[in-house]
Design a protein around this nucleic acid. Structure first.
Length: 483
RNA sequence: GGGGCCGUCGUCUAGCCUGGUAGGAUGCAGGGCUUGGGACCCUGUGGUCCCGGGUUCAAAUCCCGGCGGCCCCA
């Protein structure tokens, strides 16, 4: 029997596919909790999440970031200190207004993000340029009172996995260097998960509330819509000024230091699930898979054969565990092998090993990789070598398949006609020459019924091109339907 | 922000229009028979019909409000 992978439901009915896979693979139980926009991480999903978080920790620690943990409640006066910041968030803050039966005299916000309370503490801890640069991060829940339709992991009211980094610097330039480091870190992070991305400088009117500028990572989901998966902000002195956070500078003066912040969220997990999946369910890169190898004993034949299949399965499991893999023998007697194949395929286990009387007598194993469903006959001696090479190949295949898809969905157009052709389907990202005027981009947004993501980053001049308005273009502006 | 659809065992769903015994499938548990791509048979288990109010002799069903989910448009 020849098995082929199919991705028709995955691409044409993505929304339902996504809900289905979260439930079927026991990742995130959404829609039953009696508070809108909140869900429950189930054990299997939690393990995936934990491994993704560990990658983030390792990355930040290695680059000199220190993990901290700030309170979840922020007093109103503190959150409102920076006026642009609060303007950007005020319509989506959850407020704690009572303690028991008593109304509080100071309202407390459930943090939507932590620039304010962290800056306040930095101002207490940091007195001199000699302490800089300083890089903190925390991985916490943040809350946003979403009024639009919510979606599991993508648009929720409790973002349960918010990695926010906050840094302090003695100059504008050093903070800018930090934004570049953040971009390098996120590239490394998304590359390790095989998630393809494009990097844009968000338009002025869509930057983070309180930032000088925002650099964003976006990816394209199976339905062709674009999702923001990471951002890095140069905060300038906006927050340090309002918290009167001044330090001793090398020249003996006192001045406000410069800051950056950058974050990723649950959406990373949503995208790793979505981008690599297929009609059978999840396909997980092996380093984040809770179970990397599942062994299915095929208990055919007589008593004798069945026992030797059992023993061989356990022996192989032990052997692979010694080699460092997370292995599971599915010896449930109530399910037949076929049902187990579907079960583990839905959960995205990267590699399956079938062991039946045939394998035992021929001293071979049958390996089936999840991404392509290809079968390999492997000799007893070469087991570890083959497993390792298949798993590495699976990861790189996931990545290149995803990158190829993303690249095919980024289109550069030069005329209104080409732009209109794109707008028929609106799949992926459209790049157009842009004159630099907000009004012009706004009009194009309206015309295309798409959102301006920002300009190509690193900056690429659009010399010789002209904007749709006829003026000389200065940059490439990206447009897309977004989540 | 605007519009539409929907909420019944863990899950999917019938019943609702035309008010009167909540039924099926799947899952789960036990047993039998099987086991190389979702087997089958028997038995059992499982429901505050989303919540609150109203109408009625009687509400899953009709009406109002709330909560929650999905889809489309902006």
């Amino acid at each position: 029997m020849r098995l082929v992978i199919s991705r028709s439901r995955w691409s044409s009915d993505f929304s339902r596919w996504f809900d289905w896979v979260l439930e079927e693979a026991e990742i995130y139980d959404y829609g039953r909790y009696p508070v809108k926009g909140m869900g429950v991480w189930m054990p299997y999903g939690f393990q995936i999440r934990r491994r993704v978080i560990e990658i983030l920790r390792e990355l930040h620690d290695r680059r000199g970031h220190e993990e901290v943990l700030f309170p979840i409640l922020i007093p109103e006066s503190m959150l409102k200190r920076e006026s642009e910041h609060i303007k950007g968030f005020e319509d989506e803050v959850f407020w704690v207004t009572h303690g028991g039966l008593e109304p509080l005299d100071v309202k407390l916000a459930l943090r939507p993000t932590s620039e304010t309370n962290i800056t306040y503490y930095e101002s207490l801890w940091i007195k001199s340029y000699k302490q800089l640069p300083k890089k903190y991060y925390q991985i916490v829940s943040v809350f946003r009172y979403e009024t639009k339709a919510t979606r599991p992991l993508v648009r929720v009211r409790e973002i349960t996995t918010f990695k926010e980094a906050h840094t302090v610097h003695s100059s504008y330039e050093d903070a800018e260097r930090q934004v570049l480091e953040a971009i390098e870190m996120y590239k490394e992070f998304f590359d390790s998960l095989g998630i393809p991305y494009i990097i844009s400088r968000r338009p002025e009117w869509d930057k983070f509330a309180g930032a000088l500028y925002t650099i964003a990572f976006d990816t394209v989901m199976p339905d062709g819509k674009v999702m923001q998966i990471g951002t890095a902000h140069h905060l300038g002195q906006n927050f340090t000024r309002v918290f009167d956070f001044r330090i001793h500078m090398p020249d003996g003066t006192m001045d406000f230091p410069w800051q950056t912040s950058y974050g990723v969220s649950d959406r990373v997990i949503a995208s790793v699930i979505s981008i690599h999946g297929d009609d059978r369910g999840l396909v997980l890169p092996y380093h984040i898979a809770p179970i990397q190898i599942v062994i299915i004993p095929i208990p055919a034949g007589g008593e004798e054969e069945r026992r030797s299949v059992q023993e061989e399965s356990r022996r192989v499991a032990a052997r692979l565990e010694r080699a460092g893999y997370r292995v599971k023998v599915d010896d449930r007697e109530e399910l037949r092998p076929g049902a187990k194949y579907y079960y583990w395929e839905a959960r995205g286990v990267p590699l399956r090993i079938d062991i039946g009387p045939e394998e035992v007598s021929s001293r071979t194993y049958t390996l089936v990789r999840r991404d392509t469903l290809e079968k390999y006959k492997v000799s007893e001696e070469s087991l570890e070598k083959e497993v390792s090479s298949i798993l590495r190949d699976l990861n790189s295949n996931l990545s290149s398949r995803a990158w190829a898809r993303l690249k095919s969905l980024v289109k550069r157009a030069r005329s209104e006609q080409e732009a209109e052709e794109w707008a028929v389907e609106k799949k992926g990202i459209l790049e157009l020459p842009w004159c630099g005027n907000e009004e012009c981009a706004r009009k194009t947004e309206e015309k295309l019924d798409a959102k301006a993501l920002g300009t190509v980053w690193p900056p690429e001049s659009a010399e010789g091109e002209s904007c749709l308005c006829g003026r000389r273009a200065v940059a490439w502006m990206r447009y897309a339907k977004t989540y």
